[in-house]
Every structure is written in structure tokens, then in C-alpha cells.
Design a protein around this nucleic acid. Structure first.
Lengths: 231, 231
DNA sequence: TGTACATCAGTGAACGCGCGTTCACTGATGTAC
DNA sequence: TGTACATCAGTGAACGCGCGTTCACTGATGTAC
């Protein structure tokens, strides 16, 4: 009898199947994060999200917010971390699928797949990276810098790049990341599941990466001539 | 006497030297636009600007806003136009200073100069181009597309690009514009008048553009091999 | 296992605030004679 | 040039609304015995 009473109470209390308090806490927390991502995906900027709209969408009362985050900024920083965890996973995936012949095509495929599957995280990064909120903007741009460095490290392993300076590798990684960000931006302009448009964007990204890599074997001499003079 | 009375009234009325009603109207209108740009430059997103904060900064009462714009969106669209007028002027300047040998260095110089001199317009474009407000975001991205096309037309005049398809020229112009946007984004991260940091950003941009252009002469054959097969 | 108490995620009322928008207005400039 | 009237940029009071944050609370879960 006592057990029945408690079971009923549990399932009634929030209409969910989470047995422990910790599980329900975690569930609410994630609901708040998801509500914010959803609104950003729908076209809002982070600045225009309100604590009340987020809690409303998450199905809790405004004051419940403070059980999980001290402010919207803190929630935003959590989303930055969550998003870049996704991006790092993508980098790892790309690293593994490296058949040197088709590396560009494969990289773009990995990118497109990840954008499709984690659209919200990419929207978040692209939007917040340029949005008003100074704290979040710097958090994102800092993560982008780290991400670029990781890519530079990966690039250093390619034979053709073995002789490049760290500086030049960063420069190349930056160029590739720029192309990636612009590609993501273009994909986000397009309705979800518009295969033609997506394919067109992918083709352009591939061409741009291919063109970039075409310059690579000729790089050294050009830099020497340009910066070291006739010494 | 009558003249004196009127003169006094004029100069007292707003403490300014604008003689005609039309001039004063224009003055207020520009004050509203400038106030918005200033707040965006200071780190706000467009969404977080309020009609009241803009009128406050412009030194007029909130309701005066409606004498000039029907809504903040309308003011925003005016700023999009104003900003891209600046960017087009930049393109024209770049077009004129084309000494084929130093074209990249010169282009980056033109870019850096314009960003320094019209910082607000660049901040506006970069921020709004990714911010929440759907109307403005699309307005900006559309202008960027037009801007890219104009650049593609300019590129078509170079001997080495004369044989390129329209599609490939767009692709290349897109790559250059991406680099430009990323460069502007990096410059805006940096405090105003930090010559070292600016120079470093300029150097990276130059390298990236140079690397991109290094691939150009080799482009055709690579594409042929990739897309046309052995026919 | 059963009981008594502690913890704490979520509640709901209340607050003061800045917002966009309405409205009737004021008074200097512009214009017709 | 002088006068009488029209125009219209800017004013100021008022409104209802959603916001973030405070506070005392409730009641289910967790824990010590």
C-alpha cells in the first residue's frame, strides 16, 4: 500500500518516468537548455530570449530557473560548451575518415552530416558568435580559436604541410574554418530538408576547399619571394 | 525687430544652426540612425536596441521617432542600405587602385582603411548578418550576395580568370568575401586603434588571399579531372 | 520494514521597471495674400 | 514688407504588458534510526 501510494505520487507529480529526484532535476535542466536552443533555431537572437519565455517553453514556473542557472548568461555559456563538444566530435570523425584521395569530399560530407544532425548547435555558434552579448560572443570566438588550432595540429600531419611554420598552418586552418562557418551560415539560411539547396552549398564548399588546397604546394616559394626579399 | 525675434527663436529652439525645417528634420533623422549604430558598435545586438534608448541617445522624446520611421525594423533596413553604400564605395576604391603586381596587398589595405573609417557600418553588417531579427538578417545576406556578384564581375576582367565559368567566379568571389568578413570580424574583436593587432590581422588576411590566388592558375585542370571524367 | 525528519525542485503572489504605442498638444517655420 | 493661417517636428501624459527577481510556501523524495 505504501509503495503504491509513492508510485502513484511519482508518476502523477510530473507525468514522467524519472524515478529519482536527480533524474528529474537533470530533465528540467535539459528542458531549459533545449527550449533556448529551439528558440534560437527558430530565428531569435540570444539577447531576445527571456528567462520567462525559456521557462514557459520548458514547462516550469519562472522562478524554477534559478534552481539550475544563476542567469541567462550562465545558461548561454553552458550551451557554448555543449555546442563545441559537438564540433569537436565532428573533428574527430573527420580525422578518422581520412583517405587522402577524397579527403575534401569526405570532410565536406562530415560537415554536412553534422550540421544536419546537430543543426541547433551550429545555429547557436554562428548566431552567438556575432551577437550582442559580449560575454557569450567572446566565449564562442575563443572556442573557435581553439578549434582552429586543433585543426592546424591535424593538418601538420600531412606530408605536403610538414615543412610549414606554425603560423602558416594557423593561417590555413583559419581559412578552412572560415569556409566552414560560411558554409554553415548558408545552410542555415535554407529550409530544413531542402536536399537540392544543401547539395548546391556542399558543391560550392567543396570547390572552395579544393581551390584553397590547390595553392598549398606552391605556397613556400611565394612567401619566400614576398617576405624574405633577395637574401 | 520681427527679424530679430525670429532669429532668436530659431537658434533657441534646438540650439542648432539649421535654418530650415527640412534641415532640422534631417538632422534628427540622422541622429536616430547614428544613435543606433553607436549602440551596436558598443556591443549591443540590434534586437536589444529599444526605440526608447535610441530616441534618448538622439536627444528627442520617444514619440518623435514615429516622425521618421514606422518601426525599429524600418530604421534597421535604412542602416543596411547606408552600410552597403559604404561597402560599395570600398569596392569602387579597390577597383581603381589595381596595379596587378600588388593587387592583394592593395586590396587588404583598402579593406583595413575602410573598416577603420567606417567601423560602425562594418560592425552593423557583421552583427546583423547573423543576428535574430529575420527581416534584417535576410536583407543583409541578400546584400552580401549582390556584393559578391559585383566582385565576381570585377574578377572576370583579369586575364587569368577570363576562361572561368560564371559559377566558378561566384565561388571564388564567395571565398574572398568570406575571408573579408572573417577579417572584419577579427578586427572588431580588437580595441579601436591597436595598430599591432590590426597589422597582424592584415598580414593573415593577405596570406589567406595570396594562398587562395595561388590555386587559381591550376584550377581548370583539377575541376576537369574531378567532374568531367575521362571523356 | 516503518517512522520521523531534512532536503530541495518546483510553486505562486507580488514588486518595480522599461518597453512600444496612443493621443491631444504646442509653437516655430512656411506660405498665400 | 506685414499679416493671417496651415503645416508639421517634436512634446508630455498615460496606458497596458512582459520582464527579472524577491519571498514564503508546498509536498515528494531521500535518509537516519
Amino acid at each position: 500500500m505504501a509503495v503504491n501510494r509513492r508510485t502513484r505520487a511519482r508518476s502523477q507529480s510530473h507525468g514522467r518516468s524519472h524515478r529519482t529526484q536527480a533524474e528529474r532535476r537533470q530533465h528540467t535542466r535539459q528542458a531549459l537548455l533545449d527550449a533556448a536552443l529551439l528558440q534560437i533555431e527558430a530565428g531569435e537572437s540570444f539577447d531576445s530570449l527571456s528567462l520567462r519565455s525559456v521557462t514557459r517553453a520548458a514547462g516550469v514556473v519562472p522562478t524554477a530557473f534559478y534552481r539550475h542557472f544563476a542567469s541567462m548568461d550562465e545558461l548561454g555559456l553552458t550551451l557554448v560548451e555543449e555546442s563545441f563538444r559537438t564540433l569537436r566530435r565532428m573533428l574527430r570523425d573527420a580525422r578518422e575518415g581520412l583517405a587522402p584521395e577524397h579527403i575534401i569530399k569526405r570532410s565536406v560530407e562530415v560537415l554536412m552530416t553534422h550540421v544536419r544532425e546537430h543543426r541547433q548547435h551550429f545555429v547557436f555558434v554562428v548566431r552567438v558568435g556575432y551577437t550582442g552579448n559580449t560575454v557569450l560572443r567572446h566565449a564562442v570566438r575563443n572556442e573557435v580559436r581553439l578549434f582552429t588550432s586543433e585543426l592546424a595540429t591535424d593538418l601538420a600531419r600531412f606530408p605536403v604541410l610538414r615543412e610549414w611554420t606554425t603560423d602558416d598552418l594557423q593561417m590555413l586552418a583559419g581559412l578552412l574554418v572560415n569556409t566552414m562557418i560560411a558554409t554553415v551560415g548558408a545552410m542555415l539560411d535554407v529550409p530544413v530538408a531542402a536536399p537540392e539547396a544543401e547539395a548546391e552549398i556542399a558543391r560550392t564548399a567543396e570547390k572552395q576547399l579544393r581551390l584553397t588546397m590547390l595553392g598549398v604546394p606552391r605556397w613556400r616559394s611565394a612567401t619566400d619571394a614576398g617576405t624574405r626579399g633577395s637574401g
